[in-house]
Amino acid sequence: MIKILKFTVLSFSILFLSSCEKDEFVGPPIESIYGSLDILEPLSNNKPVGVDFSIGDTVLFFAEFSVLSDYQIDIVGRSSGASFLINGSNSNLNDAYWLGNSDNVFFKQYEWCDITLSFNNHNTVLNDSILILGERDLSNLGLLLTSFEDPSEYSIVTSSNNDEFGVYSNSNFALHGNNYLSTLGIGSAAWFGAARFSFNSNTITETDPNNIFFNGFFNSDYLGSAFVIKVFEDENGNGSYDSGIDEAYALKVNLNTDSQWHKHSLTFNDLIIDQSGNNILVDGILKPQNIIRIDITNSQSGSANGQFGYFADYFLITYNEPL
C-alpha cells in the first residue's frame, strides 16, 4: 500500500513539475507598455530628392527605437492640406511605406510634405519632409469618370435655373490637375444642371452594388447645397435610357459649406429607386453592368429659395473599397 502511494505521489510530482511552467512569458511584452523610448536611428526616407508617384515610386521610412511601440506617421501637404496617416507597432519602421495616397484631398505635384513620427504614451516626436515630383495615378483603382482635364470624358447639362455650370482652370485651386467644375443655381428648384458621364453597358465590371463606390471631391460655401448622384440603367439593352421603361437610381448628399475640399464616398447600395417624372420601378434591383449613364447634379438639401452650388473635381468609381 505504501509503495503504491509513493508511486502515485512521485507520478503526480513529475506530471505537475513538467506541466506548470511555460516556456513563453504570459501577458503582453512589458517593454511595449513601460519601456523607455530611446531613438536609436533618426527618422528618414528613401527619397531625399523627391518622389514621383506617377511612375509608381514608393516612399520607405527609416527609424529605429529602443522598444516595441505603437507609432503614427502623419504626412501633411504644405499647400494642399492633404494628409495621410500610417499606424504601426514595431521597434522600427520596416512595415511603413507610402504610395502617394491620401486620407482626404490629393497631394499635389511639386508639393513639400511634412512628415511627423509620434508614439502612443510617449512625448517623443520626430520630423522629416519630402517633395512630391509626380502625383499618383489613382484611375487604376476603378473607373475614372473625370478629373475635368479632358472634356471628352463628360458633358454638361444645364437648366433654366443654373446661373453657372462650367469647367474652369486654376492649378492652385483645382484639387487634381488644372481644371475643376464650378456650379451655381439660383431659385427654389432641386435641380440646377448636371455633369453627365455616358458609357456602354458592362463598363462597370463589378456586379455587386455593395462593392462599388462613387468618390468625388466637393467644395461649397452656399448653405443648403447638395449634389445628387443619379445612375441610369439600360434594362432593355437598346443602348439608351428610356424613361418609363428602364430604371434609374439616385441619392442626394448634403455638402459641408466651409469652403474646404471634402471627399465624399458612397456605395451604390445606398442608391434608391428614382420614380420621379416618368421614371418607373421595374424590378427594384440595381444591376451595375446595365448602367450606361451617371449624372452628378447640382441640387439643394431642401426647397428653399436661394443660391446653391459647389466646386467639384475628380470623380472616380472604385471597387471593393472607397478611395
Binding site: 513563453e24 512569458f25 504570459v26 501577458g27
Partner: peptide, 8 residues
Amino acid sequence: DLTGEGVL
C-alpha cells in the same frame, strides 16, 4: 514566478 510576466 513560475512563468515570466511580460518578460522571460
